[in-house]
Design a protein around this nucleic acid. Sequence first.
DNA 1: CCTAGGAACTGAACAGTGTTTAGTTTGTTA
DNA 2: TAACAAACTAAACACTGTTCAGTTCCTAGG
Lengths: 201, 201
Amino acid sequence: MGIAERKERDKLSMRQAVLDAAMELYHEKGIEALTLRAVAERIEFSPATIYLYFKDKDEIVFHLYSMAFAKFYQKQLEVNSIADPLERLRQGCRDYIEWGVQNPKLYDLMFILEVPMNVIAEENCQDIGKTSFAELQNLMVECIAADKLKIKDPELAAIMCWNMIHGITSLLIKKRIVIPHEAVPQMTNAVLDTFFVLVAK
Amino acid sequence: MGIAERKERDKLSMRQAVLDAAMELYHEKGIEALTLRAVAERIEFSPATIYLYFKDKDEIVFHLYSMAFAKFYQKQLEVNSIADPLERLRQGCRDYIEWGVQNPKLYDLMFILEVPMNVIAEENCQDIGKTSFAELQNLMVECIAADKLKIKDPELAAIMCWNMIHGITSLLIKKRIVIPHEAVPQMTNAVLDTFFVLVAK
DNA sequence: CCTAGGAACTGAACAGTGTTTAGTTTGTTA
DNA sequence: TAACAAACTAAACACTGTTCAGTTCCTAGG
């Protein structure tokens, strides 16, 4: 009686095929080229078929957003091996900026583009972005507990930190800060070092 | 021989009528409702007529961008009456965030999107951004000269400050920080106050 | 093995969008 | 007044996301 299971697998693999094609298109040609007709052509189905697997285009874009966040989250988990919370924070910030600069399109999806957040509100699935912020906040709790920060409110500290690293990352990605490519690490290091001098006890 | 002049005036007033209608539509219903057909209907002309006065929609959007920047500059100039450079900086930052949050789509055009930049001579738009940053940097020079800042490098100070205010503004606009609408001023004040506590001497 | 029913899929259409063009109307000028 | 140019538009084109009637195909029950 494996037919139902096979159908379930088929359904999932079809969804995955749509998402893969969508992510490919997005990577190759950007958000403007991410049309349902282009996705349909790539997977060799009619555009209408996509609507049997996804409610609308917004749901697909939201899944791309989630996939990008999953990759990012994986990278962020690496710093957990660092014992000192302040150093963990510092390295996490470094990785954040570096990841954003090296994956500008995914970063765009995650933090800049108009992601259909109504999808999140409707569904029960927890926004991975909020989880990520919660972890940053937890890290701040640790830093404050270890008396490493001048700021005593963990939420405020997390927001301040995020403002800073998102600010520089997005300004770099959107070329509002124009500097030679090789000077980027030096500049981000200077910014981060200064930030930690200001914020750390 | 006033006919040529009158025609010139007519041309200009027609352009202005298009821009006014576009800005109205934008303000009333947002950028999604800003369609050429809607603009045309509002000024009671056919959509095709618009193309006699503007190259394409991007040119119209670019003019909205310019108008937005003009308004933004005007707002920013108001702080020049404040004598104390640090207070001038603080109020400028407040105004920056407030303006961005209240004009999210225009902020989008000015500091996040890059699409309409290609329309008209790019040097001009680039100069606007650079001039803006240069002014911030000059203000930092003043603050440092008055021995008001912990950071001694004006360029670094300007970048840090811009990172912070752009970071929070864009995260709010893009709904990555989700808080009740009425809590926004409180939060931005907390962030700014903390930033100035950290950075000011 | 056969057939009814449902799941899977699609062609064609709908209502939008920005944009172009051919053709009409209008106003000016010689 | 006739010729010409400027102003304007209806209609179309090539797109978009989305819907739906209709077809194909597989499977479950007799």
